[in-house]
């Protein structure tokens, strides 16, 4: 299960990179543009700077709630000692944190990635549990289970998406037209199943993975970077980077800290 999370998250990251780099190539002949001054139709400058780090976690992670699956024998058979995935800590770092640029990015319209992002329903869990994507990017929803799931995006800024998937391995596709962070996804048949997606109208977003590490490729600029976690809420930091520069930004959450925002 862990491997899948990694795979999906890194593919999103690659996608984000591809988009911003692709956009950058076209702009190399243009005069440098700062935030908010780009002419309409312009694309973002090349993302040559790297911002990244570790989301540290202090204290003993609270145990994740156990799940009672007896309502669906299929789920019960396919999950050993199932729990929620609210707090996932590895090597002292917090996973499943959405890290994204909130302000400071070039004010341009970013091309919509055509590659799709995927969420799978597998052994009555969502894989990945937390992911990010761009507005209007295709989202493929797969049901790997031989039981009915309904995937229900409890959106507030987008129309709600709620589709029943009664056939094993069937795939439906959807997309979200508006930015929404976080957008909760739930299954109304199996109420323990929950996931979160961050939908952005730019490519500067990712999810912390093994060891709580994350990395964003950005054009030179001064950014407000936000880290969001489903239990611990939001933290914000400012970071300024030049072209080709690499900067470390560390966020830290504590086991007993109260959620913010």
């Amino acid at each position: 299960m862990q491997k899948r999370v990694l795979f999906i998250c890194s593919s999103i990251l690659v996608l984000a990179l591809a988009v911003s780099c692709g956009g950058g190539e076209q702009t190399t002949n243009l005069p440098p543009t700062g935030p908010g001054v780009a002419p309409p139709g312009a694309s973002a400058p090349a993302a040559t700077a790297t911002v990244g780090g570790k989301i540290t976690f202090e204290g003993t992670p609270p145990p994740n709630e156990k799940i009672q699956m007896s309502a669906d024998p299929y789920c019960q058979q396919h999950s050993q000692n199932p729990t929620l995935e609210t707090v996932k800590v590895s090597d002292g770092g917090l996973e499943n944190v959405i890290v994204y640029v909130k302000s400071g990015m070039p004010n341009v319209t970013y091309p919509t990635p055509t590659d799709s992002v995927q969420i799978d329903q597998h052994d009555c869990h969502y894989i990945p549990h937390v992911f990010t994507m761009q507005t209007n990017q295709p989202l493929k929803v797969k049901n790997s289970d031989m039981t009915l799931h309904n995937i229900h995006a409890w959106a507030e800024k987008n129309p709600q998406f709620n589709v029943g998937q009664p056939v094993q391995n069937m795939v439906n596709e959807t997309k979200f037209a508006n930015e929404e962070v976080p957008l909760p996804i739930r299954c109304d048949v199996h109420k323990w199943m929950g996931a979160f997606v961050g939908v952005f109208n730019h490519p500067y977003h990712t999810v912390s993975k093994q060891g709580g590490t994350w990395e964003l490729k950005l054009p030179a600029g001064n950014y407000e970077v936000v880290a969001w976690h489903e239990k611990y809420g939001v933290q914000t930091q400012m970071v300024e980077v030049k072209d080709n520069e690499k900067k470390e930004v560390t966020f830290g959450f504590k086991a007993d800290s109260k959620p913010t925002e």
Partner: peptide
Amino acid sequence: PQKIMPGTRMPTF
């Protein structure tokens, strides 16, 4: 179902 009652738990198939 969403068209009739936005937010309902009842999915479309």
